[in-house]
Amino acid sequence: MATNRRDFLRSIGTVTMGAAASVAGASSPARSATDTAGAAAAKGPHHGMVVDLRKCIGCQACTVACIMENDVPEGAFRTHVSVYEIVREGKDPAMAMLPRLCNHCDEPACVPVCPVGATFKQEGTGEVLVDASRCVGCGYCVQACPYDARFINEETQVADKCTFCFHRTSAGLLPACVETCVGGARNFGDLNDPDSVVSKLLAENAVAVLRPEMKTHPNVFYIGLDQALSGRVTGEAAYHPPFTQLEEENA
């Protein structure tokens, strides 16, 4: 029992909301739909994900599918769904689910810090990938990622993270997390194609990204993201606590 309790306490952590993160600049679909469209159109598809949080039921199918598909080692996650109880003065408590993964940023913070050039942005489609044959496992990228989306794989001793299931999308299939998303929250596709599902979702909905102030220009967008969750991304990537209560200060 002692072990369980220790594990449990570690997992719950202490999470206190800082200043409310600004979502200015992130709620507009314009960046992906237009800013990159002209330049990238000639290069073919640019992959992105739009997560409709209204459809996430917190079932963790994505989390487990990713573990199975990518042989993610024990204790680590490439994606998972954080579940929060949101408590606001004078309102009923509410449940918020936040599926989390590498944002495959257009200005990734992890790439420039890599001393050996192992982490790179894939030409065209835009995935941020790690070449394991070059990675030395220094962990600089793990620390640089504003989304806590990377870890050192304890089996391979190299940096590990979501690849958008590059091996599947290259074969014309969907990422594992997307094809098993029970609520239909995760949508994947070509941000350069205005007729794609993801482009339409961006055009038709108010969207936000996590931690826009980091200017990383993520390619993972959220519909229905509570501002209180926008910055809630660090320290939890390795574990989904049963519930994390949010003490909101500036909402």
């Binding site: 990518n70 089996e155 391979t156 190299v158």
Partner: peptide, 13 residues
């Protein structure tokens, strides 16, 4: 330092 994954970019998938 560790076990070599099956593929350089996509690990053991």
């Amino acid at each position: 330092a560790g076990e070599k994954p099956r593929k350089d970019l996509t690990g053991n998938a």
